[in-house]
């Protein structure tokens, strides 16, 4: 487990160093270095080598499910699981909500899109432990505002009220 967290920590530090790159470049960095399958293997080996007090058998799959939708997960799995538990969001409902959101974003016809799930980062406010789904789009401002409009229904669903969504120009 320690090895796993070290990998996550180092990848997150690495991620913060690539904030200046464009969304596609960042995706490449993450895709090549932040391998969920690699993390999954590490966790599996940890599970088989020791008994853990928390049930983490579902951890790798939930991340894989989200990443399969084309969303990069920039938080440790345990943090995501705990967040969903605290907010009473079922895993299936969360996944379906994300799927609907991704479909709407894809329908917008914007080619260069990068979606990631992360914790809020605010230099002036400590311990803001909410999650944000960040959508970076390489398009004009008018189309970004149209995207806000098309996401309004999904934002008003119960999950949308518990997770912040942000859309920013890439």
């Amino acid at each position: 487990m320690i090895e796993y967290y070290n990998v996550v920590q180092s990848k997150q530090e690495e991620a913060s160093n690539v904030s200046t790159l464009g969304p596609m470049q960042r995706k490449q960095v993450f895709r090549s270095d932040f391998s969920t399958h690699q993390l999954s293997r590490i966790i599996s080996s940890e599970i088989s080598s020791q008994s853990l007090s928390i049930d983490i058998s579902i951890i790798p799959s939930i991340i894989l499910e989200i990443e399969d939708l084309g969303i990069r997960v920039d938080i440790p799995p345990t943090e995501l699981i705990n967040f969903l538990k605290r907010r009473n969001i079922s895993r299936n409902y969360f996944r379906n909500w994300l799927k609907k959101l991704v479909n709407i974003v894809k329908k917008a016809g914007i080619e260069d899109i990068d979606i990631s799930l992360r914790r809020i980062r605010d230099p002036e406010i400590k311990n803001w432990d909410d999650l944000v789904l960040e959508i970076l789009v390489d398009t004009d401002v008018e189309r970004i505002m149209e995207l806000w409009d098309s996401l309004s229904d999904i934002i008003n669903e119960s999950v949308g009220k518990k997770i912040y969504i942000t859309i920013k120009p890439a």
Partner: peptide, 30 residues
């Protein structure tokens, strides 16, 4: 500085989309 979070959280209970937009603005400002 906590008031920034308070405003966004309070707004979120009334109109999540509005809260998302204000939080996005805060991100841009940060």
């Amino acid at each position: 500085s906590e008031v920034h979070r308070k405003v966004i959280e309070r707004l979120s209970t009334m109109n999540p989309s509005l809260a998302d937009k204000l939080r996005t603005l805060r991100d841009l400002r940060n």
